[in-house]
Amino acid sequence: MNTQVPPITGHVLNIQHFCVDDGPGIRTTVFLKGCPLRCVWCHNPESHEAAAEILYRAERCRACGRCAALCERGAHTLTADGGHSYDRTKCIRCGSCVKGCRVEALEQAGERQTVEEVLAEILTDRVFYATSGGGVTVSGGEPTAQAAFTEALLTACRHEGLHTCLESCGWCSAEIMRRLIPCTDLFLLDFKISDDIRHRHYTGVSNRPILENLALLKEHHARVILRCPLIPDVNTDTAHYDGIASVVNKHENIEQIDLEPYHPMGIGKSAALGKEAAYTHTEFLDPAVAERAKEYLERRVSVPVRISGKQ
C-alpha cells in the first residue's frame, strides 16, 4: 500500500520576479488562482476562478487549425472563411489546445504546482532578496482561498530564511487568518470601500469579515500595510478617505497606507476570457486625485501614506 502523502499543490496563476511594490525590497510575487470577491474594476479577471481558464487572443491567431485537431470536444473549429472559432460552452479547459498553439494566441491561466516547484522558482532570486531586504509575497486572486497551500508555501519560504508577505483582501474565516499569522512577516491587506452597502455592491461581499480580521491581526500584533485602491466613481470620495483614516487610527499595527491608483490594463483580458468587462474606464486615474487623497489622509493619520508605483 502506498502510504506516501501526496504533495500539497496549489492553483498558481503566475510567478512574477522583480516586484518592488509588494512589500519591502525586491520581491517575487506568487499570484494564486481563485477569489471570493468580484470587484468590478478588477484588472486580473483571469484570477477569479479557482480552476484553470483559457485566454484566447484573436489578434495573434493564424488559424492554423492545430488547436481544432487537438480538441476532443469540438470547442475549436476552423470556419468556412478560413478563420478560427472558439465555443466556450463546449470547452472543458483541459488545456490540450494551448499545447498545440505555437503563436501564444491560446494561453492557459493557472496551473497546478507543488510547493517545491514554486519554491524552486522563488529561490532563483535569493541573492537579490539578500541585497535588497526583499523576499516573497503571496498574492492572488485571493491566497487565503487556498489556505493550506498558502500556509505550506509561506512556511517553506520561512524555512529558507526568506521574508514573507501575504497580500490579501482579508475576506476569509478567522480560523484561516489565525493559521497564516505565524508564517507571515507582513500583511498587505486590502481595504477597498468603507461603506458596507457600497462594498457589497462593488465587490459582491460584505466588508464585515475584513474588519474582523483586521481586529484579529491587531490582537496578534501582526504587521500590516493597508492597501487602498483608488477607483474613479467608486471610492475617490472623502467619506471613504475618512473611513480609511478611522480604520488606521483604530489599529496601531497598521504601519503604512498604500494608495493604488486605478489602471485600465485588465480590460483586454476580459475580452480574451470571453467575458464582458463590468467596469470600462479606459483612462488611468488622474494622478492629481491620488495626490489629493494622499494629502487628505496625511492630515488625518500618523502613518506614512504612499502612492504605489512612485518611489
Binding site: V20, G25, I26, V127, F128, A130, T131, S132, G133, G134, Q311
Partner: peptide, 18 residues
C-alpha cells in the same frame, strides 16, 4: 522606471554576488 537608489544598488550587488 524610477526605482529607488536602494533597488539600483541591490541589482548591482546581487549581480556581482553571482
Amino acid at each position: 522606471r524610477k526605482y529607488s537608489p536602494q533597488v539600483i544598488r541591490a541589482l548591482v550587488e546581487g549581480y556581482f554576488a553571482l
